[in-house]
Design a protein around this nucleic acid. Sequence first.
RNA 1: GCCCCCGUAGCUCAGCUGGAUAGAGCACCGGACUUCUAAUCCGACGGUCGCAGGUUCGAAUCCUGCCGGGGGUGCCA
Length: 624
Amino acid sequence: MNTQTPESAGIVDPSAVLDERFKDAISSVLPDLPREQIQTHITPSRQPKFGDFQSNCAMPLAKRFQMQPRELAAKIASAIDVSGIAEPIDESSIAGPGFINITLLPSAISDALGTLDTPELGIIAPDAPPTVVVDLCGVNLAKQMHVGHLRSTVIGDAIARLYERLGYKVVRQSHVGDWGLPIAMVVQKLIEMEADGLDLNLVTLSQLNGMYKKAQAQCKPETRAVQILEKVGGHPKAMAELELRIENASEHLERAKARLVALQSGDEESVRVWQRIYDITMGACLHTCQRLHANVTDEHSAGESTYRDELGSVVQDLIDRNIAEEDDGALIVKCDGIKEPTIIRKRDGGYLYATTDMAAIRRRVQKLGGDILVYCVDSRQSLHFKQVFAAAHKAGYTATSDGHSANLVHAMFGSVMGEDGKPLKSRSGENLNLSDLLDEAVSRAAATLSERNPDIGGDERHQIAESIAMAAVKYADLSIERIKDYVFSFDRMLAFEGDTGPYLLYALVRIRSIFRKAEESGIDTSGIESAPFDLRDPAEKALALKLLRYPGTVEGAGLNHEPNRLCAFAYELASSFSSFFDQCPVLKNDDDALRRSRLRLCQLTGRVLEDALHTLGIPTVERM
RNA sequence: GCCCCCGUAGCUCAGCUGGAUAGAGCACCGGACUUCUAAUCCGACGGUCGCAGGUUCGAAUCCUGCCGGGGGUGCCA
């Protein structure tokens, strides 16, 4: 009953076949219309009563050729040959203003599922895969990761994984903030503390973070306070105290500036301390990335410091070719359509982050071979990237080796908000530390787990809780539209019910449980991957149709840099499976052929769900 | 001032290149566990898609204006 007919063998996506058949039909009805101009507008139907797919081609075509839409639809219906793929299409298939409803043949769905059921799950890599450089994570030296880094890391990694899944060549780049005055302040501070007996080998990132803040405070003159005091008339003692602090601040600042010069010129002691700061910071941050199941490692780190020898040549190059011009002592690049010029060198001769980003674009295109550059960075940087992208285009830094221009994308994202609607902060008003936040998610997950499933204990319980927590946090972050601010809520993301990471893991756990159970009961599952499909129940048909949308969804999510599309798919798939699980007995089924069909459907669903989760960077568990 | 982003059910969010009666989850109400993990399933309730125009067979989606919220805006990153 499931023999693949020659004409339907090899169908991955039925809508692709329907697309061809509709093009044939439309060509015969409208011979003057060039085939490559035909748009068949085939989409999955929203409601089962409208069939499985529909074509909305008749309305726009009728308009173009000044015909009645329903009349044209009728002509297409009588001309089309859907043999081997769908139920015959006739007048009764036409609905509303001219929708043509299509119901697939059961055999066509089965065949398509069979074609999907391969190691690559219907996703075919391009012959000549382009290179994508993904900018993500972007931690700063001497600072702990906070919620701001969560999104860049999680979304950036998901975008990278999507491209990898599509077969593109992916290069991750973490633009580490490891250069400049703030770092020099910490270096200076650390050198002073070391002189007082501090052992650098025992310093933690948390301590560095404190020093960073302290150093910044020490270098920040409180001139504003003096102005106010002068205005309202302050106590002489307070004035004296403040003036002393300003004096101290400028001393601290001078020492920091001197330290920066020393560091930049390669002074041995400065570099030694800087390296220690680097190691401490990256050790902790990369560990957090690992915990998040984000593929960000040492080899992906491309700190600002690595560009230090390129900044001068970039600036000189822009001057030589008259791309940049001097303005009020600064060096700027003007770009059409952007009012604000891009400043690439300050009046005092110093370089800015735009300069570094110009060098980074040049390296990423010309050295790393990037055809697409994706920046997964906060939306507040949108003007900056607009400027830098335009300046890089103007300078020709986006020219690829094959003569094309690289595509530069700012995959921006919104802020993480607290449940009060304000940016998420700790009780004391500081940025929320990311590893603390993850710890809390884990302990909440562990509490729920021991309540739901007390049988799981010890080490396994901890590991499962860790995975559930990461799945919850990451799914919450990935499943909403990137650009929007989102409200962070432990209660919602770890909820017992609903559209959450745990729900997806649970669906997978149930699938795995079926196979464990089958083994326990001695049910033979060997060769299940070639069992014929029998999709007699509406729930299994719905599940099958959902599965067929996987390759297209991954492509759409990847090329548009929108992981939330794949999240939505994963949720819908898990949901379809849950309905199926509820309505279609698998193991407790007397019909051996049907049981094998359903086992294969479970297996395929499990593979697709697992693949989707892996592509999103969400860990899975065996049981929960 | 100028520029960018957002505004969909009480709450949190979907809605792919304009397509049928705008969909989920939470909350609330009613059902389903001697049955493959009920962190589940099924049903009910719930919306002037910020407002007003425009484009057209058709607009949450595209265009213009306005209102509300957020962000950015020449020498920090």
